[in-house]
Structures are given as structure tokens and as C-alpha cells.
């Protein structure tokens, strides 16, 4: 199976550790991963902010870059949802590649049939199901299923877990007061858990929640769950 990594624009620039983690997990499981260098961005921010015309070149570029792969994995619930839910409507030739695009936990659990990726991580972790993963991709408990198999991990439940963190892409900038109020409540629920690590499937939401947790010097680290799955206890 030819697997390609769609890193996403935000991860490429600010969260390369997530992409490195995905690469390590898949290689550890014996798969070859490609990183087509011509990839850019899925166009979600443009499309969801009202600039669909400006998103279209990115949509077409995605099809050009990834159409030849059997499976494309993206470590982002919201980018995967953009591709799977919106691409077929925006650009019908994208229908097939959209259906072959998976969020990491879907690839691991559904396509590769793996729940134990051989990870070890000795920390108390709480998991926030991000909205697009939860309600658009219907990831269900796939990410948690993977995390539960990690040796040494202590998973604690997040209160009001299914409630949005208040990021919402440009919402965070256009509606800063409401966004901040939602963030404050989410950070409080995270701190209630006593966890030292907050995991989720989207680095953009994590930048928002993590940025809020850092602002209050909570000592909770926000990481993409791929980075936990990549840990083997050998390094950190």
C-alpha cells in the first residue's frame, strides 16, 4: 500500500514534531511513507471563512499531488474533514482521493487494523475530542483506543469533553471575547483532570488551548496524540 503523508500547512510550519511522529509510527509498523513535496494546504481556512474561490487552487493542487496514492494520512481532524466532506462538493474530480484520505486514527484502526502501535508514555494524559473529528469524521473513540494501548499511560477523563474549545479557525480572531470565554472554560476542565498532558487530534485547536494553558502557567503540555503514540520510552 502506498501511503502518503499530508502534513497540513500549520503542522509543516509550526508543529513538525507531529509529522515526524506520524512517520515514525508508520515506519515502526513496517509501512513506507511518502511525503510529496508539492503539497501545500487543504484550503479549509479560505473555504470556511468565505473565500471558496481562493480555496479552489489548493483543492486542485491536492488532487494533483495525492491522487496516485492508495491512502493519504493527515494528522488533523479538521483538514481531513475539509477534504472528505467538502471536496466532493467543491470539486467533483476530488471525490475519489477524498475518500482515500484518512485522519491518523482512521488509517491505523480501520485501514491498517492496528490498535497497539508499540508505544510507551509514562504520563497522566487527558484527551479532548476536537469538533471536526468528533462530529464530522465521527472518529468515535478511535484515538482513545490507540492511547489506551500505550504502555505506562494514565488516561483521565476530561469533563465536558465534547464541547468546542472556542478555536473555530478565524472565529478566534473575529469573535475574541466569546472564543476566550470558551477557552477559559475548556482550560478549567483540563486543569480539573490533574493531567500533565492534553492530547488531541488537531494542532490548531491545541495551539489555542495550549496557548491558554501556557498563559495561565498551568504546567499542562498540549500535544498531538501522534506524538504520544510515537514515544517508545527509549528517548524522552
Amino acid at each position: 500500500m502506498r501511503i502518503a503523508l499530508f502534513i497540513t500547512c500549520v503542522n509543516d510550519l509550526a508543529f513538525p514534531a507531529t509529522g515526524i511522529a506520524v512517520t515514525r509510527i508508520l515506519r515502526r509498523l513496517g509501512h513506507t511513507v511518502d511525503f510529496p513535496a508539492d503539497q501545500t494546504c487543504c484550503g479549509q481556512m479560505h473555504a470556511n471563512t468565505g473565500y471558496r474561490a481562493e480555496a479552489m487552487p489548493m483543492v486542485r493542487n491536492y488532487v494533483d499531488v495525492f491522487d496516485s496514492y492508495d491512502a493519504i494520512v493527515a494528522p488533523s481532524g479538521s483538514c481531513t474533514a475539509m477534504i472528505r466532506d467538502q471536496y466532493p462538493h467543491l470539486h467533483p474530480p476530488a471525490t475519489s482521493v477524498a475518500a482515500r484520505t484518512y485522519e491518523l486514527s482512521e488509517l491505523l484502526v480501520d485501514v491498517l487494523g492496528v490498535t497497539d502501535v508499540g508505544a510507551e508514555f509514562r504520563e497522566t494524559v487527558t484527551y479532548h475530542p476536537t469538533c471536526h473529528g468528533l462530529r464530522m469524521l465521527r472518529l468515535g473513540d478511535r484515538p482513545l483506543t490507540l492511547l489506551r494501548q500505550v504502555r505506562g499511560i494514565k488516561l483521565v477523563e476530561l469533563g465536558d469533553a465534547e464541547e468546542c474549545c472556542g478555536f473555530g479557525g478565524t472565529f478566534a480572531l473575529k469573535n475574541p471575547d466569546v472564543s476566550t470565554a470558551m477557552l477559559t472554560d475548556k482550560c478549567a476542565r483540563v486543569r480539573d483532570t490533574g493531567a500533565r498532558v492534553l492530547a488531541a487530534a488537531d494542532n490548531s485547536c491545541l495551539a489555542h488551548i495550549g496557548g491558554g494553558l501556557d498563559r495561565h502557567r498551568s504546567g499542562v503540555r498540549a500535544v498531538h496524540y501522534a506524538e504520544i503514540l510515537a514515544e517508545t520510552g527509549a528517548t524522552s
Binding site: I7, N11, D12, L13, A14, F15, P16, A17, G19, I20, F35, A37, A172, L173, K174, P176, S179, T180, L183, T184, A207, H208, G210, G211, G212, D214, R215
Partner: peptide
């Protein structure tokens, strides 16, 4: 609008690519 309530991550020392 962002930094009023959250720290803003800067680009990493090296990009993924």
C-alpha cells in the same frame, strides 16, 4: 485578538519538509 488570551506559537526551528 489572539494574544490577549493565548500565547502564539512561532515557527519551529525547522519545518517538517
Amino acid at each position: 485578538a489572539w494574544t490577549r488570551s493565548r500565547d502564539l506559537p512561532l515557527p519551529a526551528p525547522q519545518t517538517f519538509r
